[in-house]
Design a binder for these strands. Structure first.
Lengths: 342, 342
DNA sequence: TTGAAAGCGGTACCAG
DNA sequence: CTGGTACCGCTTTCAA
């Protein structure tokens, strides 16, 4: 039934109403009688009308487009990043929003560009690094930005992330409830506890909760300035030597690998000899040699929330800057069992 | 220097010229005196002017946006798809185009939507399946579509793909020049040679070129309706038994795995006992247990060409429907050597 | 070489 | 509940 590019006045004529009534009937911003609305709906579908995007952007206050900035660096873990991109675009569509993709150098450069040209209503920032250059950029533009992940300096930013304190408590509970009273925490490298924001919070919460429940928790870092296999294996060994029967790991994927390597080298098996829970992993834990119980940063909840915040940031009741946390969920994969009875 | 949202009239005022002169100075569609242009350029950068995207779309004939439809199915090989998305968006930016991402069900549904609303100037179709439903869709819309990959029914479509005939010849040359005169080809499943378009072309080209050069080439399929490990191993065995010292493989990744498994089971090593070249692989060959010489479908050349075709399809000299082929390149990885001298 | 002004196709205000 | 219409900011013809 459609021809070339139907315009609103054709719909109006077909339905025997005015242009404005068509507009209001479609946007719902003004009550329209049931009969009128029906005739308009019919005209719309018969003519295959779809409002012109440019005109809507110009006349209205919304572009119905979000920018999605994701560097997609070559070295990065593709499946993980793809799942976040996917989850974001699906969430956006549910709110009638399209996604404009900004990658590579455009991840940064594009932000200013699309903001200045009014191409997008908001910007969703993915794959956030601790010292992300997009932080500074987002402060120079008026377009609302939502970070999925928390950079070190997140003053004034709206960030979505896992509720790492709850996650720490959940992890402690998981092993404590199974009978472990001596727990080890293999964490980030040293610097992460000085400069970064939530590694210390997670660690503190773990300590506090363990104490609260009557467990003994001691923690080690996985390196100095950077995580290293050597430091991680040493840390793991120390914790085991100190009697830990359960390990919580809050670190990057290679650190998990190093922990498992050390246990393997000592002839310790998971979960028979040592139980493990990976906390707040943002990578795909299926890359690990052993399936681990994990409290992951999942794409869907984060992206859904980020999109919801983006939408709300366009209203007269925008979300406050700060961390918007996702309730943690533990995925059991069999790496936790009762401690050996010896 | 920038404030809220600079408009073209402010630039005009600052430069002491009319609005139209500013527009022309920026678009270059009308000669503007050097002096005037300089003053305008200065005003633009001082004010931080960036033309409003919506207004440009409405008034102009270009949106400066391409849709990129890529299902990004969960099961698909993420790194490969991501590299195509990346290459496309980079290529698009070089022509001042942004990418609107359509994934999952929007990969199809979104095409009609963005076309009808005039949101995009053209649509780039990625991850094309033999029976892709987006083929039919692209025929119902006026927005130019460029397929990166060739569906079975590509009548009237503009498709970008590897020049598989040249690729076949290149592969034959590679092993023939090394001294192999008995070559085996492990191909697609049977049906691909009946219904699909280029598997038979590739095979035919390989046979013709082998004959031309004086080599003996025999081919086997990797299954009936679907490739199977059993059929592939049988095919591989038959070719080896028939005396083949070099194998060309034109198939999916798992078929490559099956070929290697069969060779391994027979105690044959690559390239000492058997040479292998993977032809027209569209997957990441680094997932294979053995590094193989490969003539890949590379993202960059394909995406660059696709974007170029998209741009040209907006001119008064649009590209003809048909296959637009990329010259093949062989990447040597050490899986080809001279045949054993026995 | 430059300027004035008519649209582009909606949105939303002001009336009725 | 509905209609008329003044914009939204830029592109592009028409005139000068």
């Amino acid at each position: 039934m459609e021809s070339e590019m139907v315009k609103i006045d054709e719909v109006a004529k077909a339905a025997g109403v005015s242009i404005s009534t068509v507009s209001y009937a479609l946007s719902g911003k003004r009550p329209v009688s049931a009969g009128t609305r029906a005739r308009i709906q019919q005209a719309v579908s018969e003519l295959g009308y779809s409002p012109n995007a440019g005109a809507r952007m110009l006349a209205g206050s919304r572009t119905h487009i979000f920018a999605l900035t994701e560097p997609l660096r070559k070295d990065s873990h593709a499946p993980t990043h793809m799942s976040f991109v996917l989850a974001t675009s699906v969430a956006a569509r549910r709110h009638d929003y399209d996604i404009l993709l900004l990658t590579e150098e455009q991840a940064s450069a594009g932000m200013g560009r699309v903001a200045a040209s009014g191409l997008v209503d908001a910007i969703l920032v993915l794959d956030v690094a601790p010292d992300d250059e997009r932080v500074a950029l987002s402060r120079t533009i008026e377009t609302p930005s939502i970070f999925i992940g928390v950079p070190d300096d997140h003053e004034g930013l709206i960030c979505v992330d896992l509720d790492f304190e709850s996650a720490a408590e959940l992890a402690v509970d998981r092993v404590f409830d199974e009978g472990h009273t001596r727990i080890g925490l293999v964490g980030q490298p040293e610097v992460a506890y000085e400069k970064s924001n939530f590694p210390p919070r997670l660690r503190r919460a773990a300590h506090a909760h363990a104490e609260r429940r009557g467990a003994e928790l001691s923690s080690r870092t996985s390196g100095g300035r950077l995580s290293s296999v050597a430091a991680t294996r040493r840390a793991t060994g120390e914790l085991i030597d100190a009697g830990a029967t359960a390990l919580l790991v809050h670190a990057a994927d290679d650190v998990h690998g190093a922990v498992l390597a050390e246990l393997d080298a000592r002839g310790l098996r998971v979960p028979d000899d040592v139980s493990i829970v990976s906390v707040a992993a943002s990578f795909d834990t299926s890359v690990l040699p052993v399936a681990l119980d994990v409290i992951p940063l999942q794409p869907e909840p984060s992206c859904d929330l980020a999109v919801a915040l983006a939408i709300r940031s366009l209203t007269d009741d925008p979300p406050r800057p700060g961390l918007h946390l996702i309730a943690p969920t533990l995925i059991a994969r069999g790496s936790v069992a009762a401690p050996r009875g010896d």
